[in-house]
Amino acid sequence: MRSLLVIAAALLLTGCGFRPLYEAGGSSRAMQAHLAGVEVAPIADRLGQVMRNRLMDRLNAGGTPDYRLTVTLEQSTQGYGIRPDAAATQEQLTLVAHVSFTKLDGEELVFVEDMRARTSYDLVLSDFATVTQREDSARRLALELAERIHRRLALYFTARETEGQ
């Protein structure tokens, strides 16, 4: 009975116009072609290099660019979990990506968006351990934001396809 319900639900989803953003095993060929046409502008600092490398891997950039993706990163930290001696025991790291996506023919601005990611880590007695935690946390946030940017681009191209442009 359950398998019959699953099959019926799958048939209903296909009938209502539901289309997955990604196919099994990765993006569809049409989506890969759209994403390969995105040029990723250099991003400042080491975190920017990490993010740009992830974006270029995910976009399979290398084709003739039709679009330019420009990202600037802003990083901030805030201490909390205050001890009686006024020292912080934890730190919250926030990474903000200011994203602009531009169509190259005519330099038409497609969208501008700010994306945020946060994490926290413990401040320990070892300065080396604290710096290592901060750098690792920042790297993970940059990779997370790169994935979100990739999904945002995929949503843009999917919406464009369904509009028939």
Score class of each variant (00 low, 15 high):
residue 43 I to G: 04
residue 87 A to T: 07
residue 4 L to E: 14
residue 37 G to V: 01
residue 89 T to L: 01
residue 41 A to T: 06
residue 48 G to L: 13
residue 75 Q to N: 09
residue 93 L to I: 13
residue 46 R to K: 09
residue 73 L to P: 11
residue 105 D to G: 04
residue 74 E to C: 02
residue 29 R to V: 14
residue 161 E to Q: 15
residue 35 L to P: 12
residue 150 H to M: 05
residue 69 L to E: 07
residue 40 V to D: 06
residue 120 S to I: 05
residue 27 S to E: 14
residue 133 Q to N: 10
residue 43 I to N: 01
residue 129 A to F: 01
residue 131 V to D: 00
residue 49 Q to P: 02
residue 135 E to F: 00
residue 139 R to M: 04
residue 105 D to N: 14
residue 30 A to V: 10
residue 38 V to S: 03
residue 63 G to R: 13
residue 15 G to R: 09
residue 62 G to W: 12
residue 137 S to P: 05
residue 131 V to Q: 09
residue 35 L to T: 08
residue 79 G to V: 01
residue 93 L to Y: 10
residue 110 V to P: 08
residue 133 Q to Y: 00
residue 1 M to K: 05
residue 73 L to V: 12
residue 101 F to V: 12
residue 29 R to K: 10
residue 79 G to D: 01
residue 100 S to Q: 15
residue 160 R to M: 11
residue 29 R to M: 05
residue 122 D to M: 04
residue 14 T to Q: 13
residue 30 A to S: 11
residue 46 R to D: 11
residue 65 P to L: 11
residue 13 L to E: 05
residue 131 V to R: 01
residue 145 L to T: 02
residue 85 D to N: 15
residue 87 A to H: 05
residue 165 Q to S: 11
residue 74 E to H: 12
residue 42 P to L: 04
residue 25 G to L: 14
residue 26 G to S: 07
residue 34 H to L: 02
residue 61 A to L: 02
residue 96 V to G: 02
residue 135 E to S: 00
residue 37 G to R: 08
residue 72 T to Q: 08
residue 125 L to M: 05
residue 1 M to A: 12
residue 121 Y to I: 00
residue 76 S to A: 11
residue 116 R to F: 10
residue 20 P to M: 13
residue 115 M to Y: 02
residue 41 A to H: 08
residue 128 F to R: 00
residue 91 E to L: 00
residue 114 D to Q: 15
residue 58 R to Y: 05
residue 159 A to R: 11
